[in-house]
Structures are given as C-alpha cells and as structure tokens.
Amino acid sequence: MTRQIKTGVIIFGIILAVLLLHLTKIIYPVEDYARRLLSPLGSLATRAGVVVSREAKHAAGNADYLEQIDELYRQIQHLSVDYVQLHALKEENEVLRRKLGFAEQQGYEAVVANIISRSVQPERGFFMIDRGSKNGLETGMAVIFGDGIYVGKITKIFDRTAVVTLTTDPASRVAISLAGQHRLIGLVEGKGNGTALATLIPQEEEIEVNDILVTSGTEEKIPPDLVVGMINQIRDESTDPFKEANIEPVVQTAYLNIVAVLLPKVLKPE
C-alpha cells in the first residue's frame, strides 16, 4: 500500500494546488498559452470528425437525397423571388442615401476563426473557436457563416479562445424579424438536437412556411439582417395571444469548420 499511498498524496496535492491556482486566476496565463498551443491540433481533430460524419452520411444511402433535392428546389424558387425583390429595394436604398448625403453607416469587421471542439451532448449546442479577447472579441458578439448566416453568439471568452452558443442550444435566445422588415416580431429559442423555435410572435403578424427569419438588430453587438433560419411549420392556436414556428437552420452547424465573428466598427463621419 506504500506506493499507492505516496501516489495518492502526490495526486491530491497536485489537484489541490491546481484548483487553488485556477480559482485565484493565477494560472490563467498558463492555461491560455496552453490552449493556444493545443488549438491547431484541436482544429484538425474537429475537421477529421466532420469528414467521418460526412462519409457516414453518404454511406447511409441515397434514398433521402432525391426528396431533399426536390424540397431544396422548392425553397430556391421561393428564395429567388425574395432575392429579386430585396435586390431592387437595396438599389433604391443606395440611390436615396447618396442623394441625401448620409454618413457612412456603422459597419462590422469579421474575424475568421477555426472551430477546435464541439459539445458532445447532442441536446446542447456549443463549440470553441481559436480566437479570443486578444483578437478583439467580446461576449455577446455575433458568429456567422458565409456572408451573413447567423450561427450563434459568444458566451464565454478567454485570451485566445472563445465558446460560442449556437441558436439551437436551449440556453440561446435571439431577437428576430422577418426578412426585409426591420421590426421585432419575436424570439428564436433553441430546443436542442439541432432544432429551434420562434416564439412570442403576435397573432396579427403574418408569417408563412419558408419565410426567412433574420436578426432584428435590437441586441447590442448583433447586427440586423443576419439569416437565422427558415420557418418550416407554424403552430397557431387562436386562443393564444402568440403563435410559434419551428425553425429550420439554413446551415448544418455539425459540418462547419470555419466561422467569422462580427466586430462592430466605430461610426465614422463622412
């Protein structure tokens, strides 16, 4: 028992020492430096997992693909119409702004980040990125994919890394509007397992299946018009003051490797 007792004493000593250093934040710089060293391989490991997931899905069979393709084509048709109308409105807006001599709008810069780990529990939605406060990031900042698809927001920050909570996580809440409108109509709440629900939508608000929901811009650090998801089912009880809608994310976050964090630029005079 002598060896085990000695080992046990050493282990308890190390655990208590590390716990004390962590709670008093003395060890934080060492932890952040270690995270910085470990992040590149973490990113590779995550990508390897995504590749295996993709291959497993392909191997599962092509039976669902034709149905998915048809559904995607229907969505494209709806989106095309919306795009044309929105593009026309955008051009009109730019012309009016030039004529009226508006100052440059508050804009956003994007910091690109790799995903280095994901939550293991399927009912939660978190991932860790390899950028942190040293890169100008703060909690509450919007995380996007591509040109403007809202994925989640930063909820925990370290010097070199940050934790992002996805829109599908049960702890996530984001204020939304309908695409093309800048009026708050409700909240999107995560329901876990890759799903989300739009809630607190007033009964008088007209929404339809395939409508695109975007961020409303009412939250600090989250700009408006970032695509949150698409309505795929509406729950409407006439006796309730509000209706709800199931939201389908437009990007599969399980296959993401790279995201961008939006940093608000300071308002510049013309």
Partner: peptide, 13 residues
Amino acid sequence: GYYEASMLGSLPG
C-alpha cells in the same frame, strides 16, 4: 485527449 475533447463532438452520433 483530442478524441474526447475535439473529435467526439464532430463524429456521427
């Protein structure tokens, strides 16, 4: 460690 921290969250269910 990398398997349990990084890869596991990205692998199939």
